[in-house]
């Protein structure tokens, strides 16, 4: 049932205008704690390059902005009342406070915001698919696909236009991302002992990778629809976890990759590392149809 739904989703994405679907396999030790064994992650990756999802996300953000711009002022009023409550033979005076928030909309501001939203929406609608600079990528990992990983990642990208630099083109992209992966049945080796002697200790576990990222990508466009990229990625989930004192995996993914297009056919290879460490790296390959 789940595999059938996934297959239907992939087929739909592969055929829809502005969308695409690929399958990817990645093997290595990236995104897990030091001493954790490597494994294989197989994913289905759904792309929306200027398609309906990316446009809907932009329209939603614009609508929220328009609604915020229409607000004239906000009033908060608090009312309190006191009641005597008895329990177990003793009574106490309890004060309850109710806070009411009232938002007042300025009709003139609302009209202006609605007009601005409409212009923005029309501009979105009028932009052709291939000129649309926003992209949404949903990565679905499942053990049903043969790997040891389950979970998901999602990216929302803004891709800048390439600028010629010498014989190549350079482009900067920035985005927001999030996700959560479980790496099942891995083993982790740690050290136990003192500063004079240690012994390795191994345990079996399901490693987790939480991801709230602000990735940035520098892409170098070569000839023949070939591009290379480097993508540093600040993972706020691990940064905030480390600041709060939790024992978390300090995984800030960095990705070095190459992509090639042959019509709608797309190939990719990617090296994923934690902060460019050679000790925490995974190598992946991807193939599929993308609009």
């Amino acid at each position: 049932m789940r595999a059938g739904g996934l297959a239907a989703l992939v087929t739909l994405a592969a055929l829809a205008t502005g969308c695409g679907a690929t399958v990817a396999t990645t093997s290595g030790t990236a995104l897990v704690a030091p001493g954790t064994s490597g494994g294989v992650t197989n994913t289905v990756r759904l792309y929306d390059r200027g398609g309906p999802v990316s446009r809907t996300i932009l329209r939603t953000v614009a609508a929220l902005g328009a609604a915020s711009a229409a607000v004239d002022h906000v009033e908060r009023t608090s009312t309190s009342y006191t009641a005597v409550e008895c329990s177990g033979g003793s009574c106490a005076e309890v004060t309850y406070t109710t806070t009411t928030t009232t938002t007042y909309v300025d009709p003139a501001k609302a009209a202006a915001a609605a007009a601005a939203y409409q212009r923005f929406s029309d501009q979105i609608a009028a932009t052709p698919y291939r000129d649309f600079p926003f992209e949404t990528v949903l990565d679905i990992a499942s053990r049903d696909l043969g790997g040891d990983t389950s979970g998901w990642n999602v990216w929302f990208w803004y891709h800048g236009s390439p600028r010629p630099v010498g014989a190549v083109g350079l482009a900067l992209s920035a985005g927001l991302a999030g996700g959560h992966l479980h790496f099942h049945d891995r083993t982790r080796t740690t050290l136990a002992g003192t500063s004079a002697a240690v012994v390795p200790v191994t345990e079996q576990l399901t490693a987790e990778h939480a991801y709230v990222g602000t990735p940035v990508r520098v892409t170098m466009y070569l000839r023949g629809n070939l591009s290379l990229y480097v993508q540093p990625d600040l993972n706020w989930a691990s940064t905030l976890g480390r600041l709060s004192g939790d024992e978390v995996v300090d995984a800030n993914p960095w990705r070095l990759g190459a992509r090639a297009r042959l019509g709608r056919f797309e190939l990719g290879a990617e090296l994923v590392t934690d902060g460019m460490s050679v000790h925490a790296r995974s190598l992946g390959a991807e193939v599929g149809l993308v609009y």
């Binding site: 704690a33 030091p34 001493g35 954790t36 982790r188 080796t189 740690t190 050290l191 240690v198 390795p200 600040l234 934690d274 902060g275 460019m276 460490s277 050679v278 000790h279 925490a280």
Partner: peptide, 22 residues
């Protein structure tokens, strides 16, 4: 800023046990 280089222990068994730091 954000400059870090992941150094692993030189002893093989320590490195296998994830003894590394930036």
């Amino acid at each position: 800023f954000g400059e870090s280089y992941d150094q692993a222990a030189q002893a093989a068994r320590l490195a296998a046990a994830g003894a590394r730091g930036p």
